[in-house]
């Protein structure tokens, strides 16, 4: 492989070199375009309120301060939203992953009667859905409006995840293994628990990550199903403070008008950082699982 590469290098003509040079320049520009806004936000969140509102921040923090984060964690709304989001992410991910395996594994077994019909039943929901109002009516009918369960159950299973998990089980759990354990009198559940699950850790990691990120980032179900503010996940609190511009409670009333405005502006940056941090911190470690998951998914099942 290495020899092939060097071979390539020698053969590059002037035109190829120019072509490659242009590609590098474009990719560097892509890199900057993606990174710059992210750095800007983090830097702003670490600057003083006055520096943020006067536009002094360009790249690195100006007048370094942790003021924004301090105020943020004294804010009841934000703290309760954070707690709620952690709960929804933990509980929701657990429910989703378990349910997904419960349907994906039987679907992967060739001897499972009704396998194709069941698969069709599931994939059809990708093509057609009842829509917003009819779904809302069902959630209402089963009594989940303004219940925490409304964020955990109605969207618990994603069809794509079932497809990904199923094709993984199909391709990496050999039939012979099953036949052998069947002869030894191993039940299906036991086989699933002590052989399939341990052998499928890469795909379970993908399921966990996808569901967890989805749950952490979701706001729409909370918007339509929840009414009580102390059940709101962080994303809804974020929407209220940043997008609807309701200034965060906890800003000292005695502060001067200007100071309050400056702090309110700074808080928006800190809030973005705090809400995105958990996901972005684990991201570099888990990226390869995501990529793997997408590859498995792109294999036709």
């Amino acid at each position: 492989m290495a020899a092939q590469r060097t071979n390539y290098k020698i053969k590059d003509s002037a035109g190829d070199k120019l072509f490659l040079f242009i590609i590098y320049i474009i990719l560097v520009l892509v890199l900057v375009a993606v990174l710059y806004p992210l750095i800007y936000i983090v830097s702003s969140s670490l600057s003083s309120p006055a520096a943020v509102t006067s536009g002094k921040v360009w790249l690195w923090p100006v007048d370094f301060s942790l003021e924004g984060f301090k105020v943020l964690f004294q804010n009841k709304q934000v703290v309760s939203g954070y707690g709620n989001s952690i709960f929804y992410t933990g509980a929701g991910t657990l429910i989703s992953v378990v349910l997904t395996i419960m349907i994906a594994y039987p679907l992967s077994r060739k001897t499972f009667f009704g396998r194709n019909a069941l698969m069709m039943l599931i994939t059809f929901t990708l093509l057609f859905s009842g829509g917003l109002i009819p779904t809302y009516m069902v959630v209402k009918e089963v009594g989940l409006i303004d219940s925490r369960w409304a964020l955990l159950i109605p969207n618990a299973i994603w069809v794509w995840q079932v497809i990904i998990a199923r094709s993984f089980f199909q391709s990496s759990i050999p039939d012979e293994l099953f036949e052998a354990s069947e002869m030894d009198g191993c039940s299906d559940l036991r086989f699933l628990r002590s052989i399939v699950v341990p052998l499928s850790m890469p795909i379970i990691a993908v399921l966990v990550l996808m569901y967890a990120v989805g749950q952490w980032n979701a706001y729409f179900d909370a918007l339509i199903y929840l009414k009580t503010a102390d059940k709101f996940p962080l994303q809804l609190i974020l929407r209220s403070i940043i997008i609807q511009n309701n200034s965060a409670a906890g800003l000292n009333d005695a502060m001067k008008q200007v100071e309050r405005q400056q702090l309110a502006e700074l808080l928006k940056y800190s809030l973005i950082v705090v809400a995105t941090l958990p996901v972005l911190v684990i991201y570099p470690f888990v990226q390869r699982y995501f990529v793997q998951g997408m590859m498995v998914g792109s294999v036709k099942g």
């Binding site: 892509v30 992210l38 980032n217 706001y219 997008i243 995105t276 991201y283």
Partner: peptide, 14 residues
């Protein structure tokens, strides 16, 4: 370039 995919809609709009 993959990273922004993990940003939530609310944060993106913010």
């Amino acid at each position: 370039s993959f990273a922004p995919y993990f940003i939530s809609t609310v944060v993106m709009v913010s």
